[in-house]
Amino acid sequence: MEEWVVHQRIKIPFMYTAGRALTRFLDGLARGEIWATRCASCSRIYVPPLSFCGRCWRVIDEWRQLPPMGELMSYTLVRYPLPEHPDRSPLILGLIQLDGADTNLVHFIGDVAPSEVESVTRVRAVWRDERPASIFAISHFAPIT
């Protein structure tokens, strides 16, 4: 007897509430600013910001603006981009610690050839002219030369 397989497709719409801290963060990005929060207990500076420090179990309400530049901590080369990614491959994905932050941001590294990225230490945000309230307000991070 033939082996039967039932094919189905289920479409479900979703939305995601940004919440108190990320709403302010996204507003900032749309204005070309990067905002972080600082836990008064452990002094950790979170970017993207948290409204609550899970380590110290306390509300965070101290905000500070960070400069749009920092250190490239690590990177990888993506040779098979997702549909959401910009149409350029290979893509360089970087882990960036902004100056003053204790956490790292993930973003694209651009304006540098993949073969040259190993020597990059400092990077800065390259803002889009039309900035959406999302991580794509920043086009990519570029080497500071």
Partner: peptide, 8 residues
């Protein structure tokens, strides 16, 4: 509850 995300 649009004022908070899941975490909050």
């Amino acid at each position: 509850r649009l004022d908070v995300n899941i975490r909050e």
